[in-house]
Design a protein around this nucleic acid. Structure first.
Lengths: 157, 157
DNA sequence: ATCAAAATCACCCGAAAGTATGAACAAAAA
DNA sequence: TTTTTGTTCATACTTTCGGGTGATTTTGAT
């Protein structure tokens, strides 16, 4: 009788222990899962952070600061017979190369890209490339605007 | 005897089959692992890509376009106190109308036909017609040449 | 009222201009 | 030596221009 009761308790105890262990196992698994998830999120977050920074850095690095130019006209009486002097300072500031200036000059003469190419002994495509760069640097869309602006800031006569 | 041999083969076959299945299982597990690893890399890569783009977009969108304002003093060769006087004589001589002069003027500002039309509240086609007449009267082929010539003969400033 | 010049607009078509992207290569600079 | 810069060219594609033609509507002058 005693042993029987004891056995019974033993069985119950075993059941209880098993249950406890099972619960523990489940809890552990859950925890492990959570930790795993967590660590992944942290990892992903770090990646996200890093690459966001990289993106910002990239665009900052690669973007040329757009310069807004305000031209103030200063009235000066000057002999027009004196030769025109190119504003080299502006050229450097805008990063306009010698070749680009040539193209710009011919543009201001009303020449077509084709004609400019023939004049400089380069292909039409090259002229187009130069033109595109000029427009970008002068912050304009059209050749007429480019000529307009170039004259204003003293790049061409 | 026959059954025994058969049994033996059967056993061998079962062993072999078990082994094959085990190998298959292992291979499958391996593959799954690889796929898992791979998918993680892809995931991380996508995160990286997305957030790089986000960073670029952020800095482009949120950063006020770095406009560094430069003031340029331009020496004007003409006395601006004297207002520009249109060469009416030339106008009449070439038969250029008032409207055409307007178009010419806006052209010299580097505006496109579309923009000129919007400015003058007329259609693009009308601007084109005016432009064609202007080119004809000024005896030029391009707007750049027209502006060039118009300035030369004092039709525009 | 009518006639002529000017202004307006339309449609088509080909040419020119402009955009986007990529690449080769030489000279200069770091 | 590696990197950067300037020049050159290309291909593919979209947009704008310019030429040609014709038509309707104002407007001003006779």
């Amino acid at each position: 009788m005693k042993t029987r009761v004891l056995n019974k308790y033993k069985t119950v105890g075993l059941y209880g222990l098993s249950l406890a262990l099972l619960l523990l196992l489940l809890r552990w698994l859950e925890l492990k899962f959570l930790i795993y998830q967590h660590s992944f999120e942290i990892y992903a977050g770090m990646i996200a952070l890093f690459f966001t920074g990289l993106g910002i850095w990239l665009s900052q690095k690669l973007t040329r600061p757009k310069t807004e130019t305000r031209v103030i006209e200063k009235t000066v009486y000057r002999d027009p017979s004196l030769p025109f002097e190119i504003n080299r300072k502006e050229m450097e500031l805008l990063g306009i190369s010698e070749r680009e200036l040539e193209v710009l000059h011919l543009m201001s003469q009303g020449m077509s890209n084709q004609e400019i190419g023939a004049q400089l002994f380069v292909s039409l495509n090259t002229v187009k490339t130069h033109a595109a760069r000029i427009f970008e640097k002068l912050d304009v869309q059209r050749r007429t605007q480019a000529v307009e602006k170039a004259k204003k800031i003293g790049l061409i006569a």
